[in-house]
Design a protein around this nucleic acid. Structure first.
Lengths: 154, 154
DNA sequence: TATTGTTATACTCTATAACTATA
DNA sequence: TATAGTTATAGAGTATAACAATA
């Protein structure tokens, strides 16, 4: 009985730390991006654009998991602030072709190196074995969370 | 050189998993709370109210780290959906006294047990030693993130 | 003079539904 | 008939600034 209780306390502490980490990561991203005139959602779109290359809004909507209407708004904002351009699609006249501006490409490249630098900041002092354990445990937790989310999908 | 590179790959993988975990935790909370007619922000307010007991909006604003205006909106929503009440403050006639309704108290209690159940789901299969390692590593990462955020505060 | 909360205003993210142009 | 994107509409979270009531 005592053992079980102790165990639960440990699990709750782990969950609390995971939740705090989620909040702090979000705060950090929000602040860092704001310095570049970006939001988390818009940066996410830039991220997809970098991986996919120039593409249509419907591709962006699918990759981001948001509505077409939402992508219209995000692209509006990114065009207004000079990160991307909207041009006619070469072959499909219904669609728009979203591409980086010079500024968008540069900023996204900086974001990527900042991302690597953050990884270094957070995990540099961790011994290799410890990091491996941590990453594996994270993978297990992720797997359980995904299972839970799928189960809720019904 | 190779070792350093390998190391960085490990750190980046860890960061990517941390970020994915943050996203999935948020999705899970959003969906679970929606079933009760709540949002993450409103649930956060209820959480503070449970810890603090009935209190003024200014206390809630400070605890949540948001503006007074924002708290007005959150409490408006929670009053409209029947989770809390706004009453005159016993001693300070400028302030309002925010308290749980029956429904609010019950729902928050359920949230708390769901929280424990989630901890169990995510960490039940983890060996005690592994969980300890994981929690300690999380603590280290949190400490570094906090340091980083404070440094940015200038 | 300082504090509490609201009104006024504005921006962002998000969604569904109706509609236009095109495939 | 189906798809791509926009307009229309709506709700939620967030902020600052001006203001009223009270301390």
């Amino acid at each position: 009985m005592v053992k079980y209780h102790q165990y639960m306390v440990g699990a709750e502490q782990a969950l609390d730390r995971v939740l705090e980490l989620a909040v702090l990561m979000n705060d950090d991203m929000t602040r860092t991006l704001a310095k570049d005139g970006l939001t988390v959602s818009r940066a996410h779109l830039l991220w997809v654009l970098r991986q996919r290359g120039p593409c249509t809004q419907s591709v962006l909507a699918e990759q981001l998991g948001v509505s077409a209407r939402n992508v219209t708004g995000l692209v509006d904002g990114l065009v207004a602030t000079g990160f991307v351009t909207r041009e006619p699609h070469p072959t499909d006249r219904r669609a728009t072709h979203v591409s980086f501006t010079e500024r968008g490409a540069t900023t996204t490249a900086v974001m990527e190196s900042d991302h690597r630098e953050l990884a270094h900041t957070l995990f540099a002092d961790m011994a290799t074995g410890e990091l491996d354990h941590f990453t594996r445990s994270l993978g297990d937790v992720l797997a359980r969370l995904r299972t839970r989310l799928e189960a809720e999908d019904e």
